[in-house]
């Protein structure tokens, strides 16, 4: 990583990253992709999010579904760990709770591939600063 030499270079970098991030979610953008976020804080990992993370990474690629799988911190839904958030391009993010590899498989096959509505969705009840 290059050293940021001024507020200007920081701002430029931020804009670049913002644009890249925005592109990911835009429906018809050629750079858009499915985004999967797996909660990997201590609580998530302790309830089994690591196998889910590995499963998502491996299986999405095996099944030829282009997706960006990343780890994130706690989403706050401790009672439903492991939780994952799936964002389909152009759509709002959906959070699933109590995800194990079996559930993850169902999310890939039914929610991501077929766009079906499936159980286990946690309502998003917050706004972010």
């Amino acid at each position: 990583m290059a050293i940021l030499e001024s507020i200007k270079s920081l701002t430029e970098l931020r804009e670049k990253l913002k644009a890249k991030q925005a592109a990911l979610s835009q429906k018809d953008n050629p750079q858009s992709t499915i985004q999967v976020k797996v909660t990997m804080a201590t609580c998530g990992i302790a309830s089994g999010s690591r196998p889910v993370y590995d499963f998502m990474k491996e299986e999405l690629s095996k099944r030829n579904i282009p997706a960006l799988v990343s780890q994130v911190g706690c989403m706050g839904f401790c009672y439903a760990e492991p939780t994952i958030e799936v964002t389909m391009p152009g759509k709002s993010p959906v959070i699933f709770g109590f995800v194990n590899t079996k559930k993850a498989d169902e999310i890939i096959e039914r929610f991501i591939r077929k766009g079906e509505v499936i159980d286990g969705v946690i309502p998003m009840n917050y706004e972010t600063a």
């Binding site: 990343s70 911190g73 989403m75 706050g76 917050y126």
Partner: peptide, 17 residues
């Protein structure tokens, strides 16, 4: 509703990036 200020990035960003 919740308003997340302190937790604004928790569960949103990859903390290692």
């Amino acid at each position: 509703r919740q308003i997340r200020i302190a937790l604004r990035n928790c569960g949103v960003i990859d903390p290692e990036r």
